[in-house]
Nucleic acid binder design. Sequence first.
DNA 1: ACAAGCAAATTTGTCCTACAACCCTATAAC
DNA 2: GTTATAGGGTTGTAGGACAAATTTGCTTGT
Lengths: 253, 253
Amino acid sequence: MTDDIRQLSQKLAPAQPLPSRVASILSQEISSGRLKPGDRLPTEHQIAESLGISRNVVREAIAQLRADGLVRARQGAGAFVMEPEERLAIRLDPTDLENIEGMEGLFELRALLEGEAARLAAMRRTDDDLAEITAALEDMRGDEKWSEGSIEADLVFHRAIAKATGNAYIHTFVCFICDQIRRSIHMARYANQIKQLVEVNVGEHVVILDALKAGDPEAARSAMVHHITEAGRRIGVILRNEQSNAAEGIAAS
Amino acid sequence: MTDDIRQLSQKLAPAQPLPSRVASILSQEISSGRLKPGDRLPTEHQIAESLGISRNVVREAIAQLRADGLVRARQGAGAFVMEPEERLAIRLDPTDLENIEGMEGLFELRALLEGEAARLAAMRRTDDDLAEITAALEDMRGDEKWSEGSIEADLVFHRAIAKATGNAYIHTFVCFICDQIRRSIHMARYANQIKQLVEVNVGEHVVILDALKAGDPEAARSAMVHHITEAGRRIGVILRNEQSNAAEGIAAS
DNA sequence: ACAAGCAAATTTGTCCTACAACCCTATAAC
DNA sequence: GTTATAGGGTTGTAGGACAAATTTGCTTGT
């Protein structure tokens, strides 16, 4: 209920914070090529005046760009666009994920990363990790909170596996990619059909968990790749070359 | 008040802009768990006063955190720490990379990602891709610009392979991780010994390129994993389980 | 005429104050 | 007891002022 209100207010409100909108404008100027690396962008005063806003707002916008390593401000000289290789953060453009090609690319990356993560997790998982993963699986199949809870439990399952690798970076990256996918999916028509597919989904998770329990790296990796490939197919994403790989996986398990 | 500023500037890098330093402090408060998701962080006034700075600076710092999705500010209510799953960007803390454990984790992730990238590239690379990769290799072995140029050419080589996967996300992530590593390495004592090791390094690249030319996915992956493992070992990073994998790779090639 | 150095203009960095918009709570009125 | 309202607190935006640093151009000395 409150979710509906929040969605609506997000959708309709042009009242996204002003500095963020200015930051979007500027970053679009950069990514579109109108401002090339090395260029100096207009002075804060000029930007403020041309947009009819205060210099404070402009400074906050530039602070956001600076945090991403998109521009570098030098006192007395100006703010300059930096080389694309120097960026300090990864931020995915949500609009890239609205079409199916973007989703396919992201799913491929996800299968790749999480497949390897499952392999490492099979070798390194502690008993605590296993308990956490098992608990997440129980949450998935358990309650009636399908629409919201099962998706959440699904994510907890995947995150727990990434954490079981013992590598904080892998954990960070897997979490990030999964969340990007979830955010995009939530916007689409996914929750509708998930109800019928929960059993299948849970079944695939069980295969993964079994491989982790057995400590079989290749089986874990194959099962994870297969699961993600299938999960993608359920929402219309078809991966190019992983099908054969996934087939191997299902045959091996 | 000014004492606080002096303390603060002594504590952290003196050259970094003030708002970024404040953002680091706050984000550290969050990642260390002193501020948990859902918590409201102190008011801008309190932060400003406690650090002896202006509210303007605090606002710019919070703007950076907001851009990353680390906090969400609601007018009239306050700024709240968001769930870690809601992050919009990945930013690696440079201090995490100063110790050897952080480097090991990042190298493991890199081997994983780039290994798979090489596998995909072997299947999908176009002739144009191959030409680009070959050119990068030529640049590496060619000129006398060892200290700077060869490192750069090395990166170009890896980036070109990631691009040859045809997956923009893989390309983005690989570029990002490589840059993080390069930035850390540049700070360290890497360029000193690279001169003696260029031949070895080039040799490993040749193996990768041959596998890509032949279109052999597994050989490409193995060679890449081996190369990254060795590159890590050259600067003191030892990966846990990839050695055996790399041994397979070198045996297969 | 040339060079070095100095001074002024420009630009970002920081601080300050003020007010609007908004949220939350406590109090008052019914 | 419930609702309305008023108040304080907090973020959002505006605008002005000065400090710090850089760039540029001009002056001045040789």
